[in-house]
Design a protein around this nucleic acid. Sequence first.
DNA 1: ACCGAAATGTAGTTTTATTACCTAATTAAG
DNA 2: CTTAATTAGGTAATAAAACTACATTTCGGT
Lengths: 287, 287
Amino acid sequence: MNTDSNLLTQISAALPTLNKSETKVADAILRNPEAATRSSIAVLATDAGVSEPSVNRFCKRFGANGFPDFKLRLARSLVAGVKYMSRAVELDDGVDVYPKKLFDNTIAALLLAKEHLPTAALDRAVDYLAQARRIYFFGLGTSAAVAADAEHKFFRFNVPAMAYTDPLMQRMLAAGAGVGDVFCFISHTGRTRPIVEVAELAKQSEAAVMAITAPNSPLAAVSHCVIETRVSEDTDAYLPMTSRIVQLVLLDVLATGVALRRGERLLPHLARIKDSLKATRTDEASN
Amino acid sequence: MNTDSNLLTQISAALPTLNKSETKVADAILRNPEAATRSSIAVLATDAGVSEPSVNRFCKRFGANGFPDFKLRLARSLVAGVKYMSRAVELDDGVDVYPKKLFDNTIAALLLAKEHLPTAALDRAVDYLAQARRIYFFGLGTSAAVAADAEHKFFRFNVPAMAYTDPLMQRMLAAGAGVGDVFCFISHTGRTRPIVEVAELAKQSEAAVMAITAPNSPLAAVSHCVIETRVSEDTDAYLPMTSRIVQLVLLDVLATGVALRRGERLLPHLARIKDSLKATRTDEASN
DNA sequence: ACCGAAATGTAGTTTTATTACCTAATTAAG
DNA sequence: CTTAATTAGGTAATAAAACTACATTTCGGT
């Protein structure tokens, strides 16, 4: 049930199932996880008010080989910065707290996504995109910005890409699609009706339909190629903050994949574009 | 000179300055950093073909208190996944390699940004934004997509925000600006001339000018409030991949900051917007 | 209240890391 | 070219940390 890779969350999730001394150890660790990674088993035992073997047992209970191994895992978990038990921003968070939380959440989302990379789907998607005569990126709301970004990036790679955020335009383009067109739909939930309808339209043509969206969604169902993104309900409660970042990086991956497929010839092209931008600069710099 | 917080990069950077046995240790670690975090000092010493104290000395040379502390630091560095010495994508990278690299780069950029959060500037920026009568987000190129995203996010928070990506529109709006207007410029380099010009125009009005951009840039110079973002030259060589992600998260921070400043009243508003979106869904779900 | 099972602690053993010291290598001066 | 000085590196002893086996306690059930 709990596939969470973060030790801290695992521990706090398991809290109710722990017995007395284990709870003490868990408390001591959660009280100051950073310190726990630095202390020896003796210090932590004193800190928790239990004996050393209890700490050791605790470690093994959470899948570690022993205390040192446990510390290592803990250190890893901490990097993602998820040291705030409730990772959601609280109303009374100060300016020195909530920015870090937001960064931590984003980093955690990326780490998670990195662990569940749909490699096969990405490869197939690159196949589609690399051969495309023309690529359309469609998204609404937050995903519109993602689509715009994708257009820009693919364009730089000399791929004929266009982003449309107007449902009517999307409809028209999907209806008139033909062989060689690739439609890439971006939707966090895959349940935004206008987007799904356009995808269905596109599917009826000769065009290829791909989607960056949630698994088992209506949008996923109508797509030839789906790049699944997991939805983390809790952090994206009111605003899709982390999900769109993952989408963006996945589009980076696709663009890079297409570029790699084309091989070396691309680099001079990028250099040329970069040069053309220099004219708009007051000084030397990359974009 | 080297403020790099990543142990691995630190080690490989220091390679030329190391003596014989230190080099052996460094090689052994770089050969398989993951394994190094798991092995004991004895194993690593054998692996490197040196004695245990040599390994210990090596650890201290890199600022650790001893071998266990060193392992901990190493483990931390590895999480960012920067285990690829050359983090740049190579032409012969397979589909199981380059996506991870891209994610790693992005995560590394966020970790770096998190460590150098311009807290004071963020707080001031929230002051400006929270009091704004109207907010304009201006960006060009890749930053245009960021601006569009910002517009969307602030709008959801019931803040009158608009994004413009057309330089002419930007000019007109800047020229006609007045008290209560806040202009937020987004530019990776801060040297894109059209943007700087518009910022100068806006500065001449009664409006507040803020920027998410590089320090010591022309754009930073004309802004009342600058949120500095560091530019990592190597990974963003040809395309600004990681920098725009950092910008996006910084805008998340600003939007959240404004929301927090307003306090609880906001939550029902968000819930209402969420409900209004449900109508466009084929099923229940968050955006 | 007593028995048994689970939980926790104690003490001893083993492993791991550190320190102090010694030897070999290297370099610069005579 | 030798030799003294200095540094690098290794050996072995010491100290620290972690683990194991076993003893004791605690708790739930009868």
